[in-house]
Amino acid sequence: MKKFLAQAYIWLLLIILYAPIVIIAVFSFTEAKVMGNWTGFSTNLYSSLFTGGINSSLITAIINTISIALIAAMVSTALGTVAAIGIHNLRGWRRQAITFVNNIPMMNPDIITGISLFILFVTIGLTQGYLTVVLAHISFCTPYVVLSVMPRLTQMNPNVYEAALDLGATPMQALRKVIIPDIKPGMISGFILSFTLSIDDFAVTLFTKGNQGLETLSTYIYADARKGGLTPELRPLMTIIIFTVLLLLIIINIRSLKINKKLNEKNGKKVLV
């Protein structure tokens, strides 16, 4: 009985949690203007999403979102990896200071990050647009790369690097052939994390995108919903976003399960899943 009640509670919460998502998905297949009215099955909202008058601005927003996320994730991964190797070899107060500052963007609420960067760009006179959004995204993504690479460096055997140097490798070669392969999993998860954080971001983008008409997917949705609430065209768009995210998550999870399995097999351990 106790178990039944407990399970009922959990599933009740889950049903409430997923009900809005299901409702959106179901009603993206009808043309009714008012949410909750069913005027017959139709995929018109989907086709008008990509062919109607709004298509060009929507597609530009999608392209912007992805290209900003790719650039931000690549730069953050490079900057964060190099930084992590540096921090790993720092000692004392300098290490503490940089670790402390590295935590600030993760602790700061989006609105504060957004406003502070907005004021920075205004003060130095940089016109806000694509570049400032990319810079802003790099600033809040890189700390996560540093944090995902650091543990890999700590686990690494420091003698291997020294051995490579003793065997005549230049520091650059040792970095490329010894350190990088070892910390690669950390870099990959840092990259994926940066990419998702960038795509997901709304507040920081809103403050740093300027007024030249640059839109990403989230600012596009915001502008649209602000004008007329939940317009019918948003329903298919949101359905696509939600199911893309869920699909990606499932793929990433399966992948990490497989990697764990492989690692465990390599180490001769039993798989505990």
Binding site: L14, I21, F202, I221, L234, M238, I241, V245
Partner: peptide, 28 residues
């Protein structure tokens, strides 16, 4: 169940908010 609770954390905040709006619209 744990995974099901964590998954929505990855969906954009605005999208989740608008989904709530849809729920309120739906139940009038």
């Amino acid at each position: 169940t744990v995974i099901l609770f964590i998954l929505p954390m990855w969906i954009n905040m605005l999208v989740r908010t608008l989904a709530t709006v849809a729920l309120f619209d739906f139940v009038r």
